[in-house]
Write a protein that binds this DNA or RNA. Structure first.
Lengths: 158, 158
DNA sequence: CATTGTTGCCGAACTTAATTCAGCCAATAT
DNA sequence: ATATTGGCTGAATTAAGTTCGGCAACAATG
């Protein structure tokens, strides 16, 4: 039941509780109660407007591999996350320490960002993959058919 | 002005128009008008609930490089996008055709997905990077300080 | 087996926000 | 100088969010 609500809210967070209720077969207050619980338990992190990157001038998407000298929440990591062009930072197993997803206005701006990354103390080397075109991009789906109970206890308390 | 509204709505799409108005110095109907325009012009693609991946059982995040025999909207591309584990598909310049962002419950499920990808006609070879931990992950920001006018004309009409 | 407590749902009432509309002001163009 | 357009405000209306009491189902307990 919660999965159905989640799936609908991922697609359209502006749905009224009444419409949601009709869709999943519940009354408006019941849906309201469940959504409130999903929010408080952290399953729903927040509601957000999804913005077209090109509409705000972010035409270029690139994935940047970065080697750093340290591990964990290091100063260089903090420095990297300060750049507004950086959307994601993952530490990956394979061949590099960090994998960054970055968006810039153009190749020139990407070069500027790379220069700033290189200049960061602790950053050793980078390698970049520029995206030519994006065929699919969707937020985390809730349509997993999976064994219960879901690990809701893992959700953050904030 | 629209940038301010966008920035606020990316952070919290549940803000009332009155609160938004107070934040940017406009009345509620004025904000309403602007948001409606931003939605219709495609700058705001949609409102969505951001779900904690772990709360819905998606513990593992991986980036998968895929080589395919064809280019563009090929059947193998459609086949790949059918898998619910696949969140993003980009064609990248560098060394492979496609870069996939996928989420699964565990390594076993990832292996199953890779097996299905390998079995897809047109898919030549894959290489995977498993994310150990994610330090930053945020949606497209609207905080670009950039020359005007923004290329709103590029936004989709739907 | 009955009792008591808990959980989750519904319907109605109430409160708040979304939405519409008429009128106004400023900027631009004729 | 004047008409026209676009965007804003404030009030009124409509719709939604939110709270509450009561009920039914289930589980644990005496």
């Amino acid at each position: 039941m919660d999965r159905k609500i989640l799936g609908a809210l991922v697609e359209d967070a502006t749905l009224s509780y009444a419409d949601l209720g009709k869709r999943v077969g519940l009354s408006a207050p019941a849906v309201h109660e469940r959504v409130k619980r999903l929010k408080r338990s952290g399953v729903i992190r927040r509601m957000a407007a999804l913005v077209d990157p090109r509409a705000v001038g972010k035409t270029l998407l690139a994935f940047v591999h970065v080697d750093t000298t340290g591990w964990g929440k290091t100063p260089e990591l903090m420095a990297i996350s300060e750049h507004p062009e950086v959307e994601e930072i993952h530490s990956v197993a394979g061949d590099t320490c960090m994998l960054l997803k970055v968006r810039t206005t153009d190749t020139h701006a990407l070069e500027g960002l790379l220069a700033r990354l290189y200049a960061t103390p602790g950053v050793v080397a980078t390698r970049s993959y520029v995206a030519l075109s994006t065929y699919l991009e969707r937020p985390v789906q809730a349509d997993v058919t999976e064994v219960w109970p879901a690990p809701q206890a893992r959700a953050r308390s904030l």
